[in-house]
Each structure stands twice: as C-alpha cells, then as structure tokens.
Write a protein that binds this DNA or RNA. Structure first.
Length: 126
DNA sequence: CTTCTCACA
DNA sequence: TGTGAGGA
C-alpha cells in the first residue's frame, strides 16, 4: 500500500477546465479573486490538486446563490459539501453573521422591487 | 502554457 | 461577473 505521500491526481488548467466546464479564463479569474488556489510547475504552469474540481463546484453553487466573489472568499473555507447537490456549510458565528447580513440585503432588495412593481402595475390599473 | 492590459456586456 | 483580443 501507499504509505507515503498520496500525490493524487494533479492537473493543469486545461484539464480542470474540461472537468468542471468552467473556462480557463474564468478559473484564472477565480484565482485572482482569491477563491481558488494553485501550485506552480517548474515551467510556471498552474497545477491543481484533486480537490480542485470540488472547490470549483462549490464556487459555482455559491455564485448561483447570488453571493459576490468577495463574500464567497470568506464563506468558502467553511464549505464542506461533497461533490453533488447539497452544499454543506460548517456553521460558525461569523458565517452565521455573514448569512444573516446577506438575507437582510436580500429583503431590502425584495422590498424595493415590490415598490417598483406596485408603482408600475398601478399604471395599467392592476 | 504564462503574464498583462484594455475594452465591453 | 465574465469574456475576447492582442502582445510579450
């Protein structure tokens, strides 16, 4: 058996891109935003570990929840949800605060949208 | 494959 | 938030 370092599946950006369906350009962008990290090969290429595809998936689902990259950068370390559907967050006081703040901003936007909707609907007698 | 920049939706 | 292009 492998007693020492299990290197796992390392990959370059092209492979990570294919496995995740996220463009290379976007993967670099995520790294720029502090969401994704990579090691470098001797030739300067980005090298990703085997957990990278899962990390990218988590980034995608958090973006789909409407979070900004900045927020995701702080939330991501708490994300432990495995590969598929349900993202699981290891809750802690600061994460809870972040989520509550996000909900509050969402409620504010909803209120504003409802006011906009009301004003507009009134114009056609609804 | 890398970096950077400018521009744009 | 995400992309394309051009150049070193």
């Amino acid at each position: 058996m492998k007693v020492k370092s299990e290197v796992g599946h390392q990959m370059l950006i092209g492979e990570l891109s294919e496995r995740t369906g996220v463009s290379r350009r976007l993967l670099r962008y995520y790294e720029d935003q502090g969401l994704l990290e990579s090691a470098r090969s001797t030739s300067g290429y980005r090298v990703y570990g085997e957990e990278a595809p899962r990390t990218v998936q988590r980034i995608r689902t958090l973006l789909d929840m409407g979070l900004t990259t900045r927020t995701i950068a702080s939330v991501l370390p708490c994300a432990t949800g495995d590969g598929n559907e349900p993202l699981e967050l290891e809750m802690c006081p600061s994460l809870l605060a972040t989520i509550r703040r996000e909900l509050a901003e969402l409620d504010e936007r909803i209120d504003e949208l409802q006011r906009n909707r009301g004003a507009l609907a009134a114009q056609i007698g609804c």
